[in-house]
Design a protein around this nucleic acid. Structure first.
Length: 217
DNA sequence: CTCACGATTAGA
DNA sequence: CTAATCGTGAGA
């Protein structure tokens, strides 16, 4: 293991990082490393795009108005756990649970920049060698595939050894935008709760949601 | 029990 | 642009 890899492994974010507001955590997670350690080996990526979801007041959230179900109950626990669910019966989505116990909230991780285990990611994603490295992790379903994240990990503490987030000192310039694919959420669709690293090529969508032109009537 | 649907992706 | 594909949650 190289020095850099060890440094990542030993520098997990503390609980207090996660027990804050979802919007704060969403922005703060940018530039940090998401690390997965499984049988196939170790994979890691820098978080470059996130979205905040707040239970009570956010119509886009799975925990809207305090609705607690079998799937979403982990969002009501203390921040610092994984919330993983299946979307469209095909892909997994990875979230970090935020806030204090009883305050539902989560940060949806939409994109990573691969930093370790690119070969493993490539295998898991079933990409041809020709395909661009970008395709490995530039979307929520893609990054779960690349990192080997599945539903069994939902509810797991991110202070564990299999999946965790590591600190970094990287200087990052943040941009915000509307969240993606939440047409069902009415007004909340326009809230700028998506955060991404300015200029990073692994961000899934950079232009979408930008309000450069006013919406006509 | 039925059934509608989604915080997505790959491919035409 | 659309098909793929199934766990979840609401309602009968």
């Amino acid at each position: 293991m190289s020095f850099d890899e060890r440094k990542i492994a030993d520098d997990k974010l503390p609980r207090e990082f996660y027990t804050r507001d979802a919007l704060t955590v969403a922005e703060d997670l940018l530039g940090k490393y998401l690390v997965s350690r499984k049988e196939e080996g170790r994979t890691a990526g820098m978080i470059v795009e996130t979205e905040a979801y707040k239970g009570e007041e956010d119509p886009a959230s799975h925990a809207f108005s305090g609705e607690k179900t079998e799937r979403t109950k982990v969002q009501f626990e203390e921040g610092g756990r994984a919330y993983v669910y299946l979307i469209y019966g095909l892909y997994h989505c990875f979230n970090v649970v935020t806030g204090k116990e009883g305050e539902p909230g989560s940060v949806f991780v939409r994109a990573l920049e691969p930093v370790q285990g690119e070969d493993i990611m490539r295998k898991r994603r079933g990409l041809k060698d020709k395909k661009s490295k970008k395709e490995l992790t530039n979307g929520p379903g893609k990054l779960c595939m690349a990192m080997g994240i599945n539903k069994k990990m939902s509810g797991k503490d991110l202070g564990g050894e299999e999946l965790f987030v590591s600190r970094s000192e990287k200087e990052i310039e943040v941009k915000t935008a509307e969240r993606i694919n939440i047409d069902y959420a009415g007004e909340a669709k326009k809230w700028p709760w998506r955060f991404f690293v300015k200029g990073n090529p692994y961000v899934s969508e950079t232009d979408r949601g930008s309000r450069t032109s006013p919406i006509p009537e």
